[in-house]
Every structure is written in structure tokens, then in C-alpha cells.
Simulated scan of single mutants.
Amino acid sequence: MEKQMTAEEILEAIQKMSNEARWKLLDKMYDLYYSKEHLIKKERLERLWGGG
């Protein structure tokens, strides 16, 4: 069984990230938790334009 990270461990890992990686993480978290419809539209556009 894989050990789950604590909130403190996650924050420590985030602090070690570059600013670019932090922005990517925030974008992914937003999509994951708040914008599922946005993801569906994004996937459709990527398929339409050959990006996915």
C-alpha cells in the first residue's frame, strides 16, 4: 500500500518547485476540482485541431 502524503509534505514539495511548475500545478488543480466542463471543451478543441 502506497503511503499518502500529509498536507505538510505536500506544501514542502510545492515550496521546492519552480514558479513555472507551481503555475502548472495550480492550473491542473483548478481544472480537476472546479472546471470539469472546461476540460471537456478543451479536449474537444484539441481533437478538432489535432492537438490531442
Results as ranks from 00 to 15, higher is better:
M1T: 07
K3P: 01
K3G: 01
K3Y: 10
Q4F: 04
M5E: 13
T6S: 02
A7N: 06
A7L: 06
A7I: 09
A7D: 07
E8W: 04
E9L: 05
E9N: 05
E9C: 06
I10N: 00
L11V: 10
L11S: 01
L11E: 10
E12A: 07
A13S: 14
A13F: 04
A13K: 04
I14H: 01
I14K: 10
I14R: 07
I14T: 08
Q15N: 15
K16C: 08
K16H: 04
K16M: 08
K16W: 01
M17Q: 02
N19Q: 10
N19E: 13
N19M: 09
E20I: 02
E20V: 08
R22M: 09
W23D: 15
W23V: 10
W23E: 05
K24V: 14
K24Q: 13
K24M: 13
L25T: 07
L25A: 06
L25V: 07
L25W: 05
L25D: 00
L26R: 06
L26P: 01
L26K: 11
L26D: 06
K28Y: 10
M29Y: 06
Y30K: 07
D31A: 14
D31R: 05
L32Q: 07
Y33V: 03
Y34E: 11
Y34M: 11
Y34T: 07
Y34L: 15
S35A: 09
K36P: 01
E37Q: 14
E37K: 03
H38Q: 11
H38M: 03
L39F: 07
L39D: 09
K41G: 06
K41L: 09
K42F: 00
K42M: 03
E43T: 10
E43I: 11
R44D: 04
R44A: 02
R44Y: 06
L45E: 14
E46Y: 10
E46T: 03
R47M: 12
R47V: 02
R47A: 09
L48Y: 10
L48Q: 08
W49L: 15
W49S: 13
G50K: 11
G50D: 03
G51F: 15
G51M: 09
G52L: 14
G52F: 05
G52M: 11
